[in-house]
Design a protein around this nucleic acid. Sequence first.
DNA 1: CCACGGTGGTAGA
DNA 2: TCTACCACCGTGG
Length: 179
Amino acid sequence: MTAARFPSALKSTMPEIAISGPIQTGNDIFVAHFSSTGLAGLDFPKPAAHGRIEFRTSSDKLQQDWMALTRAALEAILAGRKPRKLPPFDWSQGTVFQQSVWRALLKIAPGETMSYSEIAREIGRPRAVRAVGGACGANPIPVLVPCHRVLAANKRLGGFSGGLEWKRRLLEVEGVTVQ
DNA sequence: CCACGGTGGTAGA
DNA sequence: TCTACCACCGTGG
C-alpha cells in the first residue's frame, strides 16, 4: 500500500457533491458546492452561466444551514469584515501539504497580508515557497479561505487563479492597496 | 527593468 | 519513476 507515502493518494476519495446552490451578492452569483461533510468548493461568478447551471437542492437541514453560513460569510468578507462563523470545509481533495497551507491562510485576518515565503516558514517548510503558490492556486474555496491575502515578496500582487481583478477587489474592500 | 538558478509539490504519463 | 510544469524569491547585471 503506497498510499501512506504519497499524499496525493488522498485524492482517491472525491467528495460527492450532495448539493450546490447560488449565492447572490450584488450582481455576482457565486456557486457553492457541498458534500456530505461540508463546503467542498466555491466558484466565482461565471458571466455566461446564469441560466445554464442546474442546482441540486437538499431538504437536509444541516446542509441548508451550511448554505446560510456560507452566504453570510461570503457577504461579510465582500464587505471587508471578518465572518462570525464559517461552514465546515471538506478538504478531502487536498493533499496533506495543501491542507497545511490552507489552514495557515485561515489565520490571516482581513486587512492583513502575508507573502508566499512567510506562509512557507509558517508551516515549517521554509524552502517550499513555490509549492505554497501551487497550493494557493489549488484552493477550492477562495474568498472564505483567503488566498487573496497572500502577496509576492516586496508587496507585489502575485497571481490569482480566479483572475487578478478579483484579487484586487477583495484586497481593496479590506483596505489593502497594492503597488 | 531582465535573466537565471535554487527550490519543492503535483499531475500525468 | 521521470518529467514538465508553477500564483516564488534572491542575486546579479
